[in-house]
Every structure is written in structure tokens, then in C-alpha cells.
Computed example of a mutant assay.
Amino acid sequence: MSSILQTEQDDHGIVTLTLNDPDTRNALTGNSMVDDLLAELERLQRDPSVRVLILTGAGKVFSSGGNIKEMGRQIEPDVKVETLRHAYQFGIQRLPLALQNIEIPTIAAVNGPAIGAGCDLACMCDIRIAADTAFFAESFVKMGLVAGDGGAWLLPRAVGMSRAAEMTFTGDAIDAQQALAWGLVSRVSPAAQLREDSLALARRIAVNPPEAVRMSKRLLREAQLGRLDTVLEMAAGFQAIAHKTPGHAQAVHDFLNRRANKKK
């Protein structure tokens, strides 16, 4: 893996991917970051030993989103509209699809500013926790742009339409405490404690039977879009499968043993 994306895996099956391009404040464009993330997500999807993914940024910034120097090149007269459209479709737009479809739970540990596509990257994850120094800005309009990476789909599902519209139309930033109040993040940690808090949360997930966790994630994702009867039908099928997994059998065995021991 390239030096701008660092990968760590611990004994609990927790993988931490760290955006590490300080020269661009961990930008997602104008470098290989998207391709590197996609390659790593594909590898993790195939690895049954992985239980949870944490995504964070190196230094004091989570991600600055788009690279302004790259935007400068894109406005040159010889760059065609169709070329730019193709670049989005086969570039950064593959990232929300990959994070939507990966089976393992994902946690965005937002260690600092999450700007534009960086804000949307956090929204692509299942769970978001933030350092108290973090802030979030859906700031595309300030650059005369729209959220080309799926933010119009992602942000309303995180904070609701009214608040998403406010963030989108003003481009203004909200701090970590406001993000918590709006439901954009589920908790705020002191900056120095964010890494340990994110790992502690990941461990609480990783101790559960992995088959059930993966199917639960799929159900939650489908429930965002599907009808109740469709999700119920899927849940019935998943539950039938879950009843026959080793994780369920072990959990039932452990529970009955604990109850028997209490009666002694």
C-alpha cells in the first residue's frame, strides 16, 4: 500500500486505515487516495478475519476533500465536461458504493476538519465519532460546486433534510458539539483520546459473532431504502441462516451454561 494510506490490523480483527497525505491535508483528489482506498476495501471485503474497519486521518485534519490545485487544472479550456463527468463516475463515486457494500462495520474516527468530500467520506461510514477539535463542512457551494461524491444522498440520511439543506446551501461549518446534537456523530472524544475510544468501540463490535454482525449491517443498509415487507423477508432469510452459524450455537451454549452455574 502507498505511503498516503496506512494500514494497521490488530489481534481483534480491527483494521485502521489512516489517510496520510499531509501536504494536501489528506485530500481525496489529485493523488492516488481514492484508488488506494478502493483497493484496500476490496482486500478487506475478501478477508474473513477482519471484523471492523476504522477510517481516520493523520495529523490534525481528517480530510480537506478536493484538492484545490487539481480544481485549477480542471477549469482549463481543454478539459471537457464529459471528461470530468467520466472522472467522477469512475473515480470518487466508486468510494461511497464500496463503503455501502462492504460487509464489515465501518467507523469514521474524525480527528479534525472534515471538509467537502471529507465530510461526505465520514458520512459513508456506518458510525462516526469525532474529536472535540473536529468540524464538518458541506462546503461545495463556496467553491461554486455541488457534492459530486454522493453527499446529497448521504448527508440527509445522517442529519435529516432540513439540516442537510442548511449545511449544503450555506457551506458553513459546524463544530463537533453541534455535529453531536444534530446526530452527525454519535459521540465526541477529547482529541488525544479519539484513537483509543474508536478502538474500544470497535472491540465492543468485534467480540460479537461476525456472521450476525455482517448480516445486521446488510439489514440496516437495506432498511434505508427498502419497504418493510421486503426487509422483513430478508430478515427471515438471514435469521434462518444465523440460527445455523457457529457463533449462534456458541452464544446459546454460553448463555445456558451461565444460567446453570447461577442456579448452583
Rank of each mutant, 00 (worst) to 15 (best):
G247V: 09
K80W: 04
R157H: 10
E138F: 13
M71A: 15
A206K: 06
S216G: 10
V252A: 05
F140L: 09
K69T: 14
V110P: 10
G160I: 06
V213W: 03
V159M: 00
S189R: 01
A134D: 08
D120V: 12
A130N: 01
Y88N: 06
S63T: 05
P190W: 03
S198P: 09
E211Q: 14
Q6V: 15
R227L: 14
L99F: 07
G91P: 07
A134N: 05
A165F: 11
K80A: 14
A147K: 02
I107N: 07
I4S: 12
P77Y: 07
A134M: 05
L194I: 05
R259W: 05
T56P: 00
L53S: 02
E196K: 08
A176W: 01
I174S: 07
L84R: 13
P48E: 04
L154I: 08
K60N: 14
N101T: 15
Q100K: 13
R258N: 13
Q45A: 15
R73I: 01
E103R: 12
D21Y: 10
D197N: 06
L194G: 05
H243P: 03
G237D: 11
Q178M: 13
A249K: 15
H86T: 12
V231P: 02
Q89V: 03
R195H: 13
R258T: 09
A39D: 14
R203G: 01
L95V: 04
P48H: 08
R203Q: 08
F255E: 11
A176Q: 07
A236I: 08
S198Y: 04
G144Q: 07
I75D: 08
A235M: 10
A27R: 09
G148A: 02
S63H: 00
I115A: 00
R46V: 05
E42G: 13
R259N: 02
A158V: 09
E211S: 11
